[in-house]
Design a protein around this nucleic acid. Sequence first.
DNA 1: AAATATTATGTAAGTACTTACATAAATAAA
DNA 2: TTTATTTATGTAAGTACTTACATAATATTT
Lengths: 319, 319
Amino acid sequence: MSFIKDLESFAIGSRIKNLSDTLMKDMSRVYKELGIDFEPRWFTFFQLILQKKEIPVTQIATELNQTHPAVVQVINILEKKKLINTKKDKNDNRKRLVSLSSKGKSLAEELSPLWKDVHMATKEMLGESAPDFLEKVGKVENALQQKSMYQRTKEKINPRIINNLEFVEYEKKYLSDFQKLNEDWLNEYLEITDCDRIILSNPYNEIIKKEGHIFFIISEGKIIGTYSLQKINNEACELSKFTIKKEYRGWKFGERMLEHAIDKAKELRFESIILFTHPKLKEATLLYRKRGFEVIPEYPELTDKTGRCSLCMQLVINH
Amino acid sequence: MSFIKDLESFAIGSRIKNLSDTLMKDMSRVYKELGIDFEPRWFTFFQLILQKKEIPVTQIATELNQTHPAVVQVINILEKKKLINTKKDKNDNRKRLVSLSSKGKSLAEELSPLWKDVHMATKEMLGESAPDFLEKVGKVENALQQKSMYQRTKEKINPRIINNLEFVEYEKKYLSDFQKLNEDWLNEYLEITDCDRIILSNPYNEIIKKEGHIFFIISEGKIIGTYSLQKINNEACELSKFTIKKEYRGWKFGERMLEHAIDKAKELRFESIILFTHPKLKEATLLYRKRGFEVIPEYPELTDKTGRCSLCMQLVINH
DNA sequence: AAATATTATGTAAGTACTTACATAAATAAA
DNA sequence: TTTATTTATGTAAGTACTTACATAATATTT
């Protein structure tokens, strides 16, 4: 216990979990010793149903911040014990309205003095230790509602990632990463065609050997995204297989990668970059347009092999 | 969520549980998205083992305020993942010493910047919402360590019980209560003999019909304890089957019940009360002695039928 | 009006515990 | 020194969830 305390804000989750476990376990013991068939976690259910009279399952879940299967399971237990009644909502046949049975109501009445005792004991305990504890809990709850710990952590992690960005060229060891990145992206938005399968199964033969390039954007050893640049003719190259891992989206890695691709095309002395995209992929299309790509009707020598990406875009490079 | 908040200190356990669930779930999401095979609840384990280098299983449990089977299970998972090593303690062959493997150490090192980010994010979150939150949590933890919520609640409940004490005489409906009370007590300290079984199986025939009495001390409908008074001869009666339910001990209900028994004996015009107890039952013996009972070698007409309670005590009644 | 998406609920299977028990080693007591 | 008690661990079974899926009713879009 003292150890977790020493970890301070380093392990705030575990610490608070311990506190709640202790409280719940103590309450459970009180009910058990008084010979009352009641679980501490039913308390909020009872209070809620008592207040709302009739309430559908999912609303219980949202009010109590629980998953709906958890609620369904408790509801089933309470129904088996005949403490609650449920019936279909006449206005919405999906909804199952939960209410206290007369047995449930009389149990609530029987428990009411005990609940008052618990309330008093809690208030006294807080009074002598930290009178504003609940106020502080509320503040923390609010802060987390404004911005979750997940988001806050990401905001710390991502700048670190951004400061350590690197571009590396394709190697054999990246084969499975390249495949996974592209498969995930295709599965998300479109469908994988035979044309994709050929390229993904052997990018070395299909891209590198044909004077093409594959790059990965990585940070601290973790792959964030990839793209390929393939030669069409001496003037133009095609940008494709352009994707950022789902969990890294929204942090402008796409912009960084596109810039790198343009630099690379410049370095390779191409005059323009061609790409195929799909109107469905709004974010991607916007990204290309912002950087100066313009929709063109088609490009000679380069028909859309997949037959799916109907939008052809071009960027003319200023050397 | 707002509902639980509205319940205030009425549902402090549930509220804090929600908070910790939210925090843990968010952290879990961070690890998952970064593709790291690590669970939030392993964090305290890692920190602890990292600090102690080598530590036995039960010590982990006490330091982390967990049950030892929970620890064993996590240890087994981490061992399967080769993140920790375990070996027997040479000085104490029962102990299994847990330490981080080299893989575990390098994972800890890899995660260290992430943990720092989490720490920073937490500190910032607390800073902007409730800078003294952890201090308050500590105060509440201390208050609960001084006196648990269980104890505090009991201290509220019991005076209510004391103010509603009643004595009722045996009725058929109390048979099973009488049996259970006595069986529990006997199982706790001694062994149930055939003599006990006869009386408990039919207290009406064995006690009431033979000019004896059985009383129950109850409060708000709940039975707290029982005793019986049996006629030995015109001068003396025997007090036996004297027991208070385990969960109600330590609240002077025994004193109340003994006083009632003495009053009853007085009312029935007996000159003395005899009882058999056992030196093992220190609390009971002390209770009787305090009220004026004195050890006597034996009582004619009343041999110890069970052959087990070696201590005979007597109280001479002042009419 | 038909097609699609969303909402409300339920179920099945898995995970992280818990309680209750068992066992062996070490320590204390008789 | 034998016997009882305590300590350290493990295991098995149960509980309270979770995630992932399925289904039907309602709402929204085309």
